[in-house]
């Protein structure tokens, strides 16, 4: 076994995954190659030291904090803001739609009256007084005026 092969298989050897035939070659290489033998020794030492690393305990308040966050989730600020924004937009849309509907009605009334006047004038030859439509009411503007 060459040193490159040794290094490539070192983890399999340490973790017990190396096949029997290769394992024998591996062990023979350890006894014949000082550098690879040192390499293996260092890897094992690192593994040993890692297991001794003291991992601190997690904070004892973590689960309480998780529960509190979940309770907040019922009415999260972002959700409330979104609902408020959507409601405001809807209200504005309703207000504007009333305004435009009214404008539309005024315009419709104006055109309707104009059409009636044209028909009347043509049939009678009589010039009709001009009226205007304001706030859904027909008001007289006198002899002249525009629709």
């Amino acid at each position: 076994m060459k040193c490159n092969d040794f290094k490539r298989n070192i983890s399999l050897f340490i973790d017990g995954y190396l096949k029997e035939d290769l394992k024998k070659e591996f062990e023979e290489h350890i006894s014949s190659c000082k550098e690879c033998s040192e390499f293996l020794k260092d890897i094992l030492k690192i593994s040993e030291e890692v297991k001794k690393i003291e991992i601190p305990e997690p904070s004892p308040f973590i689960f309480e904090r998780v529960k509190n966050r979940l309770k907040e989730r019922v009415f999260p600020k972002a959700f409330v803001l979104k609902v408020a924004f959507a409601t405001s937009l809807s209200l504005l849309a309703v207000i504007f739609s009333f305004h435009f509907v009214n404008k539309g009605r005024e315009e419709y009334a104006r055109r309707y009256i104009k059409e009636l006047y044209i028909i009347k004038e043509k049939s009678t030859g009589y010039q009709m007084p001009v009226y205007n439509v304001e706030n859904n009411y027909i008001v007289s503007t006198g002899r002249s005026g525009t629709f």
Binding site: K7, R8, I10, S11, D15, Y17
Partner: peptide
């Protein structure tokens, strides 16, 4: 296998 091996070699 390969990542573990590389990690160990790099640490060494």
């Amino acid at each position: 296998k390969s990542r573990l091996n590389r990690a160990r070699i790099e640490l060494r």
